[in-house]
Amino acid sequence: MIKFEHILLGLFAQRPWSGYDLKKWLTEGGKFFRSNADQSQIYRLLARMEGNGWITHTVDPREKRPDAKVYSMTERGRAELLEWASSPYVPPARFQDPDFLVRFVFGGIVDPVALRTLLDTELAARRDQVARHRGRDRTPRFVDAIPEVDVDRARLLLELSHIRGMSEIDAWITWLEEMRVALDAAKVTTPPVAPPPSP
C-alpha cells in the first residue's frame, strides 16, 4: 500500500518543494494520488520526514510575505524512495489503486525491466479478475429486507452499477495494454527475458 511519504519523496526526486507548492500540486495534478490532504497534514508529514532524515529545508525569504521553507531530498530520502520503488508490487483487489498509479508515474526511477514488470503484473491481475468474476451469478438476494427497499429498483441499480464497473475495468485493461505497447515502442520498458525451455 502506498504511503503519503512515498508520493512526496517521488516529487522531491524531481525538485525542491515548499509545503504550499505541494498542497497546490496535490489539489490539482496530484488529486488522483491523494485526495483531501490539508495543509496542516502536509506540514506535519514534512516535519516527520525531516525528522527521519529523508528531507532537509532551507528558508526562502519572501518580500512582504512570510518566509517559506523549501524542502529537498537527502541521501537517506533517496534510499527510502528507491527501496520502495524497487519493492515487489502486489496488485490490490481494487483496480486503479493509487499504489499502481504512483509507481507508474514515478517509473522513471526504476530500471526498464522493473517498469515493464509493473505493467505486466497489473495487467495479469486485472485479466485474471475479469476471467474469474465476469460470468459469476450476480442475482441479488433479498432476505428480510427492510420495507423501504424497492426490490425491483435495487436489482436494477445493482445491475447498472455492475455494467459500469465492467466497462471501467475493460477500459483499464485496454489502457494497460496500450501503455505496454507505447513504452516498448519508445524503448522505455524492456520485457523480462523468459527462461529457456526445459530440455
Rank of each mutant, 00 (worst) to 15 (best):
R44L: 11
L46N: 02
S72Y: 05
F104Q: 05
I146C: 14
A186G: 05
E159K: 08
A68Q: 10
F95P: 05
P61I: 08
L82S: 08
L82P: 04
L158I: 15
P192K: 06
A93H: 15
D170W: 11
K31G: 03
P66R: 13
W17A: 01
R94M: 14
R155Y: 06
P199W: 04
L119S: 00
A185L: 07
R62A: 07
A171G: 15
D137Y: 09
A13I: 06
P196F: 13
G77N: 03
D111S: 11
S167P: 02
A182F: 04
P98F: 01
L156S: 06
R62H: 14
I7K: 05
L183I: 06
A47R: 14
G29C: 02
P195M: 08
E28Q: 11
A124Q: 11
L157V: 08
S161I: 04
E177V: 02
A145E: 07
G53P: 01
R155M: 12
L176H: 02
H57N: 06
R62I: 09
K69Y: 13
A131E: 15
I2L: 13
I7T: 07
L183E: 03
G53Q: 03
T139P: 07
L156V: 04
V70L: 09
G30P: 04
P92T: 03
L82I: 14
P92K: 10
L45G: 00
E83P: 00
Q129V: 05
P140E: 05
L22H: 04
L183Q: 03
T56A: 13
S86C: 08
I169Q: 13
D21Y: 02
A185K: 09
P92E: 09
G135W: 02
P192D: 14
R94I: 14
